[in-house]
């Protein structure tokens, strides 16, 4: 296992941090370090996308990815991180199915079972998750002890009615995390016979609607979108980059579909001028992404906490 950490500190970052600290003081607020230990809550988000039925590592056949991936290794790593961190969310951005004979022979049972064993908290649906039709997906759902979240597919007139949630709220040491999912246009990508009467709706409008509920009605502290839209495209097509700048209230987009190996998460300014972070970690379970969010807990009415204070550690794959 390789864990590469690269702390990217340049002069500009230093200046920004300095300016940020100054801003806190001028507002008469208390900086991060002034809180006691109990004030700090760390949330660890682990994520995969497009695992594509890669149960075993790629075979040692001289191909580019030989020896990489494998669910047993991922499970061991996740277990180790859970021993170190109290607040872990393990998420997947879709295309659990298709890519090895495990799927062709067992229809997704093995994939769902190992994800459940690893303690996945939620996943969204990718286009390949329709490969055995809606019925084929429904058949495997009992093997999943975690929810599939998709906000912009209407399954009312399909067998998936009532089986897919739009979003789910997780609570970790008082932090409320809202997670929702977005899927891409099925028409033209997935055989109509396989998605049946599933109705696709505009992901940007839906994302704004759901994120607003999570922020303003559910009062979530962090909002995560599991997106199978794809990182970016050359043509005019909705992508995570477009989603990020066309929405409000989303803190993090965990992406998939384009199998993009991002060297580091990308920060994009959303409609409110706030940061929405995008990340995607390739495919086939070759990588596991990890984002740690540190929160300041505030009790009583006169204390104020600092605002967003990004201290990135850039990882390299």
């Amino acid at each position: 296992m390789e864990e590469l950490l690269l702390t990217k500190t340049n002069r500009r970052d230093f200046l920004k941090k300095g300016a940020g600290a100054a801003a806190i003081f001028t507002l008469g607020t208390v900086p991060f370090t002034a809180f006691g230990r109990d004030s700090n809550v760390q949330l660890t988000i682990l994520h995969t996308n497009d695992v594509h039925s890669r149960i075993e590592p790629f075979p040692m056949d001289g191909s580019r990815n030989q020896g990489l991936g494998g669910v047993a290794r991922r499970a061991a790593l996740v277990k180790k991180i859970r021993q170190e961190q109290p607040n872990v969310l393990l998420l997947d951005a879709g295309d659990v199915f298709q890519g090895t004979p495990y799927f062709n022979l067992y229809g997704g049972e093995v994939e769902m079972t190992v994800m459940s064993d690893m303690g996945y908290d939620a996943a969204t649906m990718g286009n390949h998750d329709f490969d055995n039709g809606i019925a084929g997906f429904v058949k495997q759902l009992p093997h999943a002890n975690f929810p599939f979240l998709v906000s912009n597919y209407n399954f009312e007139n399909t067998e998936l009615k009532g089986k897919i949630q739009s979003y789910k709220i997780f609570k970790k040491q008082g932090i409320k995390i809202g997670v929702f999912g977005l899927g891409l246009e099925l028409n033209g990508l997935v055989n109509k016979k396989n998605y049946g009467e599933t109705v696709y709706t505009d992901p940007i409008a839906k994302a704004n609607e759901v994120a607003s509920i999570l922020k303003n009605e559910e009062h979530c502290d962090l909002i995560i979108c599991l997106s199978h839209l794809g990182y970016k495209y050359r043509e005019e097509k909705v992508s995570d980059q477009i989603l990020a700048k066309s929405t409000r209230n989303i803190n993090l987009i965990i992406g998939g579909h384009t199998h993009t190996f991002m060297k580091a998460p990308e920060d994009i300014l959303n409609l409110d001028g706030k940061v929405t972070t995008i990340n995607q970690v390739g495919f086939a379970g070759i990588n596991l992404g990890r984002l740690d969010y540190f929160f300041n807990r505030e009790s009583g009415k006169h204390k104020m906490v600092s605002a967003v204070y990004p201290v990135h550690e850039y990882g390299l794959a």
């Binding site: 296992m1 390789e2 864990e3 590469l4 950490l5 991060f32 700090n40 809550v41 590592p57 020896g67 990489l68 991936g69 494998g70 290794r73 991922r74 790593l77 008082g174 932090i175 502290d221 962090l222 803190n251 580091a264 998460p265 972070t277 990340n279 970690v281 379970g285 070759i286 990588n287 596991l288 992404g289 990890r290 984002l291 740690d292 969010y293 540190f294 929160f295 300041n296 807990r297 505030e298 906490v305 600092s306 605002a307 967003v308 204070y309 990004p310 201290v311 990135h312 550690e313 850039y314 990882g315 390299l316 794959a317």
Partner: peptide, 14 residues
């Protein structure tokens, strides 16, 4: 609760 900072890591599964 307010977000104060975040960090990123990536694990290669090999």
């Amino acid at each position: 609760l307010t977000l104060s900072k975040n960090e990123y890591k990536q694990y290669g599964i090999d």
